[in-house]
Write a protein that binds this DNA or RNA. Structure first.
Lengths: 246, 246
DNA sequence: AATCAAATTGAATAGGCTTCAACTGTTACG
DNA sequence: CGTAACAGTTGAAGCCTATTCAATTTGATT
């Protein structure tokens, strides 16, 4: 029994595993959540450069130094915020896709979901290029994995669509992915810069998404089945409602 | 003669306007060029965050304080570097387009030119999101105008292509623009992250550009005219050569 | 040559990230 | 209960870098 790690609190006492979440670990986890949440808020409001660690600490209700027991530095904290964002984004994307039926409506949903999300949390998305500074070992990065998981939702749709004959052609999935997410990211930025009113932005989104999805699926909206068109309308209504704050 | 502005050096002596470029103004302009050049070099090497004003001053051969007589702050200096980049990019884009003949080969050139340029000077392009911090008055920004001038090259191609019947459909030019530049920017990033070898990157570029141009022009490469296909090959050879440093 | 504005300098200032020695509250154990 | 051990917390101090500015140099003008 030499050199056995101490492992004090890990092997829980066994019983009441859910109610008494007031253990050390759980408090630590809760605090980590508070810090990430504070980070999201401050980074979103001020942007990476103008956000200060002091602000984040204040918002999270901890001392400056405490931040550094959870994250190595400001960069790592920002990464944590982005990672959290990616996780949520992937979750809601999967959920939404699962409640749609056809390839077209699924793609349509995914596109709308993506572009509205990044428009809302634009401040966070914009930090990304700053953070992946060292391209060399990017594949070791946590964000790399999270991004991969996220885009896998799209990749899956394309493969299924091909198998079912909904998507013609055999272009590399990576190419379609570049076009899909690239257009949405760029479109989000343009629309935010160009259109100041929410209504105009919604129109921008619909124009772009319709065209993009048609390019991939092949048929355009007006020639789709009635069921397809219905589901597409539902997608639009739902995202519109979400924006109103519902 | 009360309160008349002094205007010392502006109203030149009239004669020899070109040879004696050793005047105060010209030296100032030369120094501004040196600073932008130094900024490009340092920002490209270290990225915006790790680049220091001291490094740039040293590289430009001036004192730290001198930088501030040319640019208000680090941000403005970075903007200057990006502005310079845009100007060059637009120039070479126009040149290249003018030496191509058909809509397809012009688009093909523009796409390759864009993606190879941003892959080469990726460090500079990545600073952009950082700099356009205040979206509200972006239209007053110098970069806004430069970007507009640049994408106008694409817009012109689309309009001409429509007029000549080369490009079908009547989708909003803004939508096509989002798809075109969005896909290229995103594709550049993916390729740099994914493919380490130059050959693999060239393959990535060709796959993406071919697909993208086909999506816009409508016909795909193998059904284009012989002349079109020839010009496309020339484009590929030329960009390949440029990469080798020729 | 004298004068004046423009341009340059670099040391001083200010502000923010990060470190770390001291402190606090919790857990384990007799 | 008392107490040892320790994870977690604190905030003041150190360091680094953007930015300022009073003093100086440079170059044009008369």
């Amino acid at each position: 029994m030499a050199s056995e790690p101490v492992e004090t609190t890990n092997m829980a006492t066994g019983s009441d595993a859910m109610s008494s979440s007031n253990t050390r670990q759980s408090r630590v986890r809760k605090r980590e959540g508070a810090i990430i949440s504070a980070g999201r808020s401050v980074f979103t409001t001020y942007g990476y450069a103008k956000a200060t660690m002091a602000m984040i600490a204040r918002e999270a209700g901890v001392a400056d130094g405490t931040l550094y027991t959870y994250f190595d530095n400001k960069d790592a904290l920002a990464r944590g915020v982005v990672a959290d964002y990616y996780a949520r984004l992937t979750g809601t994307a999967k959920e939404g896709v699962d409640t749609r039926r056809t390839t077209r409506t699924r793609l349509d949903f995914l596109a709308r979901h993506h572009i509205t999300s990044i428009m809302e949390e634009r401040g966070i998305v914009e930090m990304l290029p700053l953070l992946s500074s060292n391209l060399s070992d990017y594949s070791k990065d946590e964000l790399y994995g999270l991004n991969k998981t996220y885009v896998a939702v799209f990749d899956g749709l394309i493969r299924e669509g091909r198998a079912s004959g909904d998507i013609p052609g055999d272009a590399d999935v990576a190419v379609l992915r570049d076009i899909f997410f690239g257009a949405l990211d760029y479109g989000a930025r343009s629309s935010l810069l160009r259109s100041s009113r929410q209504g105009a932005r919604n129109a921008d989104i619909t124009r772009l998404v319709d065209r993009l999805v048609s390019m991939i699926v092949g048929t355009n909206t007006s020639t789709g089945s009635l069921a397809d068109r219905l589901e597409a309308v539902v997608n639009r209504v739902e995202t519109a409602l979400k924006e109103v704050g519902n």
